[in-house]
Computed example of a mutant assay.
Amino acid sequence: MKRFIIPFILMCVLFLSACGNSTKNQAAGDANKEDKSETETITYQSENGPIEVPAHPKRVVVLTGNAGDVISLGVNIVGVDEWSKASPLFKEQLKDVTTVSDEDLETIIELEPDLIIGGSDNNNLDRLKKIAPTVTYTYNKVDYLTQHLEIGKLLNKEKEAQDWIDDFKSRATTVGNKIKAKVGENSTVTVMESYDKDIGILGNSWGRGTEVLYQAMGLKMPEKVKEMTTKEGYYMISSEVLPDYVGDYLVVSKYNDQDNSYQKTELYKEMPAVKNDHVIEVDGNAFMFNDSLTLDYQLEYFEEQFLK
């Protein structure tokens, strides 16, 4: 009996030892995989040429209006611009994220980003590039859907970005057809935003829902708006000439801290769009951008407002 017990105990010891070594080897393998994931890079073809960026970025600083694209693609943001932080659509996702600008270099260093996304007009780009790989975009250099795809390529999530684009285009076409069937194929829509005592009339790619209305859903803008916004994307006017630019429907992007007194004037109240209750007011902070999350929100909002 003793001769049987001793070899059995020895076998157990050897088995446990082998299991221990296997667990250690697996843990080491997992650690190596994690290290490799953190150091792996891809080459992104930016508008300024190829740049090496993390294949799986984990700490991104966003200094331009693409925070919604990054959030929707499931990538972690550690620093963000103040305008994105002000959007109620991103409130939950950005609640613990530090607000930074292109001047807050020390704060950005402390955030230890592995990728920085900025605009071509940002300051201190040379210094930002020393902190982490920095990719910049020129606003409206590409259309809004291509911009989302570019962010997807940058974050190594091109398929996810393309899937959203295909789905959004399909949904927007369906909603656009419903709206045009109700308001008429030739009905026109004007998008405006007030700036102190002046008013900005917006073209077809200036955020505030313009991409959804004019490009995705195919609604029309008044000819005078099209003419005056072609060059800059927007056109500044005084409230006195507002009726000359307002179509059958008016979308008003509003901020609580802006002067909206023009809406109390007889000139404003007598415009056909106002008298016909064809005014759609939107939260300027929620409607500012044209990222994927904001576009989804805008599409749903317009569907509700136009078809109610």
Rank of each mutant, 00 (worst) to 15 (best):
M1N: 08
M1W: 07
I5N: 02
L16T: 13
S17Y: 14
C19F: 12
A28Y: 14
A28G: 12
G29W: 12
N48C: 02
A55R: 02
A55D: 00
K58V: 00
I77V: 05
S84C: 08
S87N: 03
D96P: 01
T99V: 13
D102L: 08
D104V: 03
E106K: 14
L111R: 03
D114Y: 02
L115K: 00
D126V: 08
P133N: 05
T134N: 04
V135C: 09
T138C: 03
L145D: 02
H148L: 05
L149C: 02
I151C: 01
K157P: 05
E160I: 10
D167H: 09
K169S: 13
R171H: 13
R171G: 07
G184P: 13
T188Q: 11
E193F: 08
L202D: 02
R208A: 12
Q215A: 11
K224E: 15
K226G: 13
K226P: 00
E227K: 15
Y234R: 12
M236H: 12
P243R: 11
D244K: 11
G247S: 12
V251S: 09
V252A: 14
V252Y: 13
D257G: 04
N260I: 11
K264H: 12
E266G: 00
K269P: 09
D283H: 06
Q298Y: 08
F306A: 07
